[in-house]
Structure formats: C-alpha cells, structure tokens
C-alpha cells in the first residue's frame, strides 16, 4: 500500500545527462569506435603482408595486400566499370524491392484474404534458392541486365514484404481506438499511425534487404557467367579465376565487400536517423 516512490523529475535527469563527464565519455567512445576497427584491420593487413613475404607464398596462391592494392590501381578502369554495373544492379533491385515489398505489404495489411492467397507465392519465391531459378530467368528474359535485376529483386523483396505487413499490423490497439474515437479518415490513420508504427520493422528489413540485394546481384552474375557485354564485379571474379589472375580476383572481391560494407553502414545510419529519437532499438542507453 505505502509506496514511497516519488514522481521522478526528468528535468533534473535531462540536466545531469548534459554534464561534462558524460559527454566526454561519449566522445571518447565515439573515437574508439572509429580508431579500434581501423587499427585492427591495419594490423591484420600488416600480418598478412609479412607472412606472404616471409614464407615467400607465390602471388597466384595468396597475393600480398600490397599487390592487390597495385592491381586495384592498374586495373582501375575495368574494375570501376564493373563496380558501377554491380552498384547499379544492387541499388535498382533494392529500390524495386522496396517499392514492391511496401505496396504488397500494404495490400496484405489491408486484406487478410489477399494475404492468404498471395503469401504462398512469396514464400515459394523466397525459399527456392536463387541459383536454381536464375538459369530459367536468363533463358526467358533476353535482356541480361533485366534478368539479373529480377534475380536480385526476388532475393531482396521478401524481408521487406513480410516486415511491412507485420509492421502495419503492429500499431498499438489503444491508439487505434483513439484514432477511431476522433473519427480519423483511413488516410490519416495510415499516415499518422500505421506508417510510423511500421517504420522500425521496415528499417530492420531494409538492413537485411540491402545485403541480400548485393548477394542476389552477385549470385545472378555468377550464373549468367561472362556472357553479357556489361559485366559486374562477380563476372570479373569469374573471369580472373579462369585466367588464374588471383590478385585481380582479390581486388574484385575487395570491391564487392566494400560495397556490402557501404550498404550496411548506410542502412544502419538511415535507421538511426529515422528511429533514433524514439525507438528502443536505436536509443543509446546511458550507463
């Protein structure tokens, strides 16, 4: 019965959180978060370089990082052309996956029967390995770029669809009641309640789909081989492996990874920018 808890005064809490020691600690942590990974990678590269040099490993087995860097410079023009192709493919498939996933997700959230009828197709598309469908798509679609786009899209599309549908349904029930009470129009309900409620789910899906779009693009290119005239990083890798140009293979591989990292960093940043001020997943807890 007799609780002695007094209403906490957030004014005071907020004030103390802006005190100097906390800010200083935060800045230090921020610096460390950049400095430590860079240092770790630098040490790993140095070790790699040293071991290759020390053991005299031939460059057609494992090239030293310095050789890979040199290849990056000498083959810059052709590698960049391929990178641009892969970036275009990845981003376009991700964009289409967002558009398609969100639209269909909204449709699913609006109507149970539509969801029940169409969901199996989405699941089948998702669970069938893309490597297995890609050859068919390449046969049916004459334009190689479009075929590759479809492959990457199939892979990236599903998480966005399912998360959007779940997210739109996740709005708080009392808030829904409140919107009914104030006679909100369907559009108002969508804009002010359902979309913000779905945003954390959508952002989680985007992080996954970004990576998947790249994987889809690379896998599809592998299946397509070096047939097309415009070729991406994956076909560069294939081509180099046929010609036993291992340093070039590593250089292309490096660019693929770099692309994946950039996509990851961007989607993470976007998620923080959109949700940071309110959603639990992105709020930094003060220790």
């Amino acid at each position: 019965m007799s609780t002695s808890t007094i209403d906490p005064t957030p004014a005071a809490e907020i004030a103390t959180s802006r005190n100097n020691p906390v800010i200083r600690r935060e800045r230090r942590e921020k610096r460390l978060r950049i400095v430590l990974p860079i240092a770790a990678i630098a040490i790993a590269l140095a070790l790699w370089e040293f071991l290759v040099w020390y053991n005299e490993v031939p460059h057609y087995l494992i090239p030293a990082p310095s050789l890979i860097a040199k290849t990056l410079v000498t083959d810059w023009a052709s590698l960049m052309q391929s990178a641009v192709f892969t970036v275009k493919l990845t981003l376009m498939s991700l964009g289409l996956a967002i558009v398609g996933g969100v639209l269909l997700g909204m449709l699913f959230a609006l109507s149970r029967p539509i969801e029940m009828s169409l969901f199996p197709f989405a699941v089948i598309m998702q669970v069938t390995p893309i490597v297995a469908i890609a050859p068919l798509i390449l046969i049916y679609v004459s334009n190689t770029f479009v075929a590759l786009l479809i492959c990457a899209w199939i892979v990236a599309f599903f998480p966005i669809l399912s998360n959007t549908a779940i997210g739109l349904r996740s709005a708080d029930h009392n808030l829904r009641d409140l919107f009914s009470l104030y006679r909100a129009t369907p559009l108002q309900r969508l804009r002010y309640l359902l979309v913000p409620s779905a945003l954390p789910y959508f952002m989680a899906a985007l992080k996954i789909a970004g990576g998947l779009a790249l994987i889809g693009a690379v896998v599809a290119e592998f299946v397509a081989g070096t047939a097309g005239q415009n070729t991406g990083l994956a076909s560069r890798i294939l081509e180099s492996s046929f010609r036993n140009e291992i340093p070039r293979m590593f250089a292309a591989l490096f660019l693929v990874s770099l692309l994946g990292v950039v996509i990851f960093l961007f989607t993470s940043w976007l998620s923080r920018a959109v949700l940071g001020h309110w959603h639990e997943s992105e709020i930094k807890r003060e220790g």
Binding site: N174, L175, D177, L178, L193, H277, W278, H279
Partner: peptide
Amino acid sequence: YVFQEATLMPWA
C-alpha cells in the same frame, strides 16, 4: 478518453 496506459505515440 483516457486509457489505462498513457497510450502516447512514442515517435511524437
């Protein structure tokens, strides 16, 4: 109408 929980929009 006031609900049992505050029922505020966390994003606003």
